[in-house]
Design a protein around this nucleic acid. Structure first.
Length: 422
RNA sequence: GUGGGUGUAGCUCAGGCGGUUAGAGUACCAGAUUGUGGCUCUGGGGGCCGUGGGUUCGAGUCCCAUCACCCACCCCA
C-alpha cells in the first residue's frame, strides 16, 4: 500500500455513513424549527482569526492548530472550531445590518492536533449554532434547550446538562483575584498542573481531578460567588426560563470553559457511556467575541456538538441505521442477446426511479443469483434465451421465494407495483 | 507532549523453551451431471508475520528503534 490515512482521521464507509446522514438530517430539521439557517464557511482561515478569536493562551491555539504557510506566504489554519469563523462571516458580509437577531447553524469538520483516543480525533465534526444580536436570557435558555431537544430526537437520553455562569469582564477579575488569594497559601501543595494553572488560568483550578487539588479547592470561591449584579440577574433569569421550559439541568459552579471568549452562561453536556472524553457538546455566551474579532460590540451565544461522540453514544445504545437494499432489482442475464435486452430494461427501470443493477461479469446464472442474494436485492429479473423468444422475463421475489412471468412491456409496472406494495 | 497495552490472510484470532513449504474460522471466487440465491459439502486464490536494525547456524518467536492503532493523562467536541 502506498500510504495510510493520517493519524486521527477516519474513513466513513457505507454502513457507517448512514448514521451520519441520519444525524445530519435531524440537525437540519431541528435547526429549521428553531429558526436557524445554514452557513458554510471555509475549512481554513487566516491564523490570526483563531489566535485572536479563540485566545492566545488557550490549549487550542498554543498546541493544537494545524497551521501552515500557503504559497503566498500567508499563515493559514485549518479551523479548530467554527465560532470565530462564523463571527468573521457575520462581520464580513454585514449580517449585522440585516434583521436581528441572526441565527446560523453549521455542520462540518474541525481540526485539532491532539493525541487521538476514544472519542477524540484530529479531524472531527461538529453541529453548531450561533445566535447573534440578543442578550436576552431567554435566548440562553433556548440555545441550551435546542441542544437537548436535538439529542432527544436522536434517542439519546440520560445526558446531563451542566450550567454555570462565568461572569463578564467586570466580575471576571474579581473571580481571578479571589481564587489567587484563596490558593496562594496552599500553592506548594497543588499538583504541578495546577501550579501552572495558578499562573495562567486560575479558573481552571476549580476543576482539577487530582484528589489533593479537589480537596484543597472544596471551599474555594466560585464564579457564581463573585458575579456582579447584572451577571447574577441574568443567570437567575436564564434558570427561570429553563425551569419554565422544563428542561432538566444541574448547576455546576466548577464548570469552566477552555476558550477565552465565553461570558455569562457556559454549559456542557455530558454522556456517561462514551469513555473519558465524556463531553458530548458544549457552548455558551460570548458577548466579547465579536468586538475582539473587530466588529462593533454585539452579543452572541451558541453551541457546538461533537458528532463522533454522538455516534459513540448511539452505538453504545445499540442504534443501527435502517439499510434499504441497493439495488431493489438485480437483472441476471445469460448470453449476449439477453445481456443487450437486459441493458435496455435496466435503463427503463432506473428511469422509473427504481434502483437497479445487472451482472457485467458474465457469471453463471447460479452465481448471479447468489450475488443477488448477498446484496439482498428485493427482486431478481431473469433473462435468458427462453425468455427472449417469448418476449417475457421471470420476475422473482427474493424474500418470498416466488416468481412469475411478466411480458417485457409490463416489467416496469410490475416491479413498481411490487415495491409499492411494501 | 507523557504513560500503559496491542500489531500474524479482507475480518476475528492460533502459532510450547527460537528449528522444515506460517495455520484455523469467517469472508471472497469456483464447483456439486450444461436455467434459479439463502443451508450443506468439495476445491481455490489470498500473508514484506507493521517497518528498520541487531543477536543467532537459524527469528513470526529474543533485543533495540521506529510507525500505527487502542486506552488513559493533559485538554476538549
Amino acid at each position: 500500500m502506498l500510504t495510510t490515512r493520517p493519524r486521527g482521521t477516519a474513513d466513513i464507509l457505507p454502513g457507517q455513513v448512514e448514521k451520519w446522514q441520519y444525524i445530519e438530517a435531524i440537525a437540519a430539521r431541528v435547526a429549521k424549527e428553531y429558526g436557524y439557517r445554514e452557513v458554510r464557511t471555509p475549512i481554513f482561515e487566516h491564523t490570526e482569526l483563531f489566535t485572536r478569536g479563540v485566545g492566545e493562551d488557550t490549549d487550542i491555539v498554543e498546541k493544537e492548530m494545524y497551521t501552515f504557510q500557503d504559497r503566498g506566504e500567508r499563515s493559514i489554519t485549518l479551523r479548530p472550531e467554527n465560532t470565530a469563523a462564523v463571527v468573521r462571516a457575520y462581520l464580513e458580509n454585514s449580517l449585522y445590518a440585516g434583521p436581528q437577531p441572526v441565527k446560523l447553524y453549521y455542520v462540518g469538520p474541525m481540526f485539532r492536533y491532539d493525541r487521538p483516543q476514544a472519542g477524540r480525533f484530529r479531524q472531527f465534526h461538529q453541529f453548531g449554532v450561533e445566535l447573534f444580536g440578543t442578550n436576552h436570557p431567554a435566548s440562553d435558555a433556548e440555545v441550551m434547550a435546542m441542544a437537548m431537544d436535538f439529542y432527544g430526537r436522536l434517542g439519546l437520553t440520560g445526558l446531563e446538562l451542566h450550567v454555570n455562569s462565568v461572569g463578564c469582564p467586570n466580575c471576571r477579575p474579581v473571580v481571578r483575584e479571589s481564587l489567587l488569594k484563596f490558593f496562594e497559601p496552599v500553592y506548594d501543595e497543588l499538583c504541578p498542573n495546577c501550579q501552572n494553572r495558578y499562573r495562567k488560568n486560575p479558573l481552571r483550578l476549580l476543576d482539577c481531578k487530582s484528589e489533593r487539588c479537589a480537596e484543597l479547592s472544596k471551599t474555594a470561591p466560585t464564579t457564581v460567588d463573585c458575579l456582579c449584579g447584572d451577571c447574577r440577574t441574568h443567570f437567575e433569569q436564564v434558570q427561570q426560563y429553563m425551569d419554565d421550559l422544563g428542561v432538566p439541568y444541574v448547576l455546576d459552579n466548577r464548570l469552566v470553559r477552555g476558550l477565552d471568549y465565553y461570558t455569562h452562561t457556559a454549559f456542557e453536556i455530558m454522556a456517561s457511556d462514551i469513555g473519558a472524553q465524556s463531553s458530548i457538546g458544549a457552548g455558551g455566551r460570548y458577548n466579547g467575541l465579536i468586538e475582539a474579532v473587530g466588529g462593533a460590540p454585539a452579543p452572541g451565544i451558541g453551541f457546538a456538538l461533537g458528532l463522533e461522540r454522538i455516534i459513540l453514544s448511539l452505538d453504545k445504545r445499540g442504534y443501527a441505521p435502517d439499510l434499504k437494499p441497493i439495488p431493489e432489482v438485480f437483472l441476471t442475464v445469460t448470453g449476449d442477446t439477453a445481456s443487450r435486452e437486459g441493458f435496455k430494461l435496466l435503463a427503463s427501470l432506473r428511469a422509473a426511479g427504481i434502483s437497479a443493477d445487472m451482472d457485467y461479469q458474465g457469471r453463471s446464472l447460479k452465481a448471479q443469483m447468489k450475488y443477488a442474494g448477498k446484496i439482498s436485492a428485493r427482486y431478481v429479473i431473469i433473462i435468458g434465451d427462453a425468455e427472449l423468444q417469448q418476449g417475457r422475463i421471470v420476475l422473482r421475489d427474493m424474500s418470498a421465494g416466488e416468481q412469475q412471468e411478466v411480458a417485457l412491456p409490463d416489467v416496469v409496472a410490475a416491479v413498481t407495483l411490487g415495491l409499492g406494495g411494501e
